[in-house]
């Protein structure tokens, strides 16, 4: 299993619905594979009686698979989420859509054209959990930054993770916070390097990292009360 896939699996913990969908999809796939195996076994067996019995058994298994699929379909939200994920990934690869509010989820991106491998979108209160997962997987924090989407009246907070392995896997964790009350929990307890990055992001965007013990300007003057990278900032 490639490191990208491994990391994706690890990150799925953040999204229980997606994980459930995937688990069921996998179960379905497994059931399908069982049918296949059964069929092959049947083809091998020439005995008709046995064949009949097998066919019956196959039907039974197929019924099982059907019901598994139905259970997937029954969970409306999950299905929607599952569908949301795939088209989003395709869209992302083909033509980068206008950045805007997206659904929570994990998207694999093309490294050659994007420079990143995994794109995670989550709720603001999930970033600490995400950082924990990344820390456990041996990633280091490359950068934290914000983007001011003034038209959507939102601030995006982006965490870039990378790892030292020979195989490339760069993970982007992003989330939206409101522009008027930008608040997000700090990940400093998990990643000490986040200290300065969070202070810098606070300088530039005014995003408050709750729980940060020392959120004072790092690059701006000590008494700075402005946030220059906000689009409506005028010096």
């Amino acid at each position: 299993m490639s490191i990208v896939e491994e990391t994706r699996r690890a990150l799925l913990v953040l999204f229980p619905e997606l994980a459930a969908v995937e688990e069921e999809a996998r179960a379905a796939a497994q059931a399908e594979a069982e049918i296949q195996a059964a069929e092959e076994a049947a083809a091998a067996e020439k005995d008709e009686n046995e064949m009949d019995a097998l066919l019956a058994e196959r039907d039974a298994v197929r019924l099982d698979a059907e019901s598994a699929k139905q259970s997937v379909a029954a969970d409306e939200d999950n299905l929607e989420a599952a569908e949301q994920e795939d088209p989003a990934a395709e869209k992302k690869e083909k033509e980068p859509e206008e950045e805007g509010p997206r659904e929570n989820g994990i998207v694999l991106t093309d490294h050659a054209s994007r420079g990143t491998d995994i794109d995670v979108f989550c709720d603001p209160d999930q970033v600490v959990a995400a950082a924990g997962i990344m820390d456990e997987a041996g990633f280091f924090l490359e950068a934290i930054t914000g983007v001011d989407w003034i038209k959507e009246d939102k601030l995006e907070v982006i965490y870039d993770y990378n790892q030292y392995g020979q195989e490339q896997c760069r993970v982007v964790v992003r989330t939206f916070v409101s522009r008027t009350e930008p608040e997000i929990p700090t990940i400093m307890d998990v990643m000490p390097s986040a200290d300065w990055h969070e202070r810098e992001t606070h300088d530039f965007y005014g995003i408050r990292f709750t729980g940060h013990p020392n959120l004072i300007p790092i690059l701006l003057p000590e008494d700075a009360d402005f946030h220059p990278l906000l689009k409506d900032f005028t010096p």
Partner: peptide
Amino acid sequence: AAGDYWASVETARGNLGHRLVCD
């Protein structure tokens, strides 16, 4: 095209990354 892009190079001091967000 709109989207965001990352590019890293190795400078004498380490990994220099540019994150470019285009609209």
